[in-house]
Design a protein around this nucleic acid. Structure first.
Lengths: 232, 232
DNA sequence: CGCGGTTTTGAATTAGTTCAAGATTAGTGG
DNA sequence: CCACTAATCTTGAACTAATTCAAAACCGCG
């Protein structure tokens, strides 16, 4: 059975594709489900496919030789990921883990040259994705070099809720389970420091915590913390 | 006057181009000289061109809103840089400064779509360049999250001399002027810490310092430091 | 209702920064 | 050729942000 255009018609990656173009892209893809905590692909593994997240949230994790984990990013609905083929790489540089149950479109790498030639705007959007990831990663290096932990965590939280936030009556809530440890691994710090800061912010009414939950109740106030403009 | 094929024939970026292919690429380029400390392009500026370094060394620098500087990387001979166009960006995300007198090939961005279509292996090498920069930058985030300053500086030094080292009778020397401050801005630390560590390493016979000079006299020993395998 | 994963919080420790001052070096112009 | 200037580098001492160590409390699920 063939996948339906409506799956991807609304996504920015396919903004300037017409009906036939969409069909051409979908013809080579298959859709599959990944339960929470399962791996879509694994660091160091042979890169055989590239992916697009239709539903859910995916955590991209790098593990160092010594066993340290770092969360490189979260993938949101509608984003391409695992596009090693577009960078001329043959292995995945990180692992992708479903943060919740996910639905994923998968293309075999073999389809890439053909797609690139016949649907150039699709390829262009892949390159743009890579470019903006490079931007983000460089911005992160800059943050880690110049800002201190409190600002980094505040920025990270604001980024998460702006990209993967869900409005509730209390404020904006992170749309997937996230532990203090996860936040630590995103910001290069320890879960202890994250916990302390979240507790402090909760006392100030900026956020509301819970088990694997964070709600930003006062985004503007948190912004002030992130910019280090606060009188202590 | 037209540029000669021999300028670029040996470069990895053009490995699988034949004579006519090389000419097609060169037809749109012009060559120019940048004196030491001059800017090839400027952070935030309109991205009008992309570049290839023929001779010299270039420092890619990002400046934060608060005025902090971070050295994102050094560009070596034969490398593409400023390829914002390949990422679909319209401004440069960093500045590029000549670390020594440089010779640079410049293409107008307008030539990109055409080159991409007619010389796909050239485009592919640009995408690969971006991919490996993303890799490097993510590796740097990982380092900054998990390693301590001493290891980071040792790694950075080894990376520099392996990419831009010049053999001397003393050891391998960094091939361009580099200050303690520069090293600090590459590793997210302060010039004081860098100076202290270089002094200590000099006492151990691992490196030899000088004004804007670093020579690695014992690469293997420095490797031991980088891997944190040393008995203190 | 007990167990594993998560979170919180105090206290001790430390790596690295910040502050301060001086020493060294290369270049400049008289 | 030499004094002078500006940049770079070095080193000590005080300080502090964040980690590490340790222990307990807290959930939520089976």
């Amino acid at each position: 059975m063939t996948l339906d255009r409506s799956l991807i018609a609304g996504l920015p990656a396919f903004a300037d594709l017409d009906g036939p173009g969409l069909d051409a892209v979908l013809a080579r893809a298959r859709s599959s489900r990944f339960p929470k905590d399962s791996e879509v692909f694994s660091q160091g593994g042979e890169a055989a496919s590239f992916f697009l997240l239709l539903a859910g949230h995916i955590r991209v994790v790098r593990t160092s030789p010594e066993g340290h984990q770092v969360i490189a990013r979260y993938i949101n609905e509608g984003e391409l990921f695992g596009i090693a083929v577009a960078m001329g790489r043959s292995t995945y540089p990180a692992s992708a883990v479903a943060a919740v149950d996910c639905v994923v479109l998968t293309w075999p790498n073999a389809a890439w040259p053909d797609l690139q030639a016949r649907v150039p705007s699709f390829a262009a959007s892949a390159y743009q994705t890579i470019g903006s990831r490079l931007q983000d990663t460089q911005a992160q290096v800059m943050e880690m070099s110049t800002q201190q932990v409190e600002q980094r965590i505040a920025h990270a939280l604001l980024r998460i809720v702006s990209q993967s936030g869900r409005k509730t009556e209390q404020g904006i809530e992170v749309d997937f389970p996230i532990t203090r440890q996860d936040i630590a691994e995103m910001t290069g710090t320890t879960l202890h420091t994250v916990s302390r800061l979240l507790s402090a912010w909760e006392d100030e009414g900026l956020v509301k915590g819970g088990r694997q939950r964070v709600v930003v109740t006062n985004p503007h106030g948190l912004m002030v913390v992130a910019e280090n403009r606060r009188r202590k």
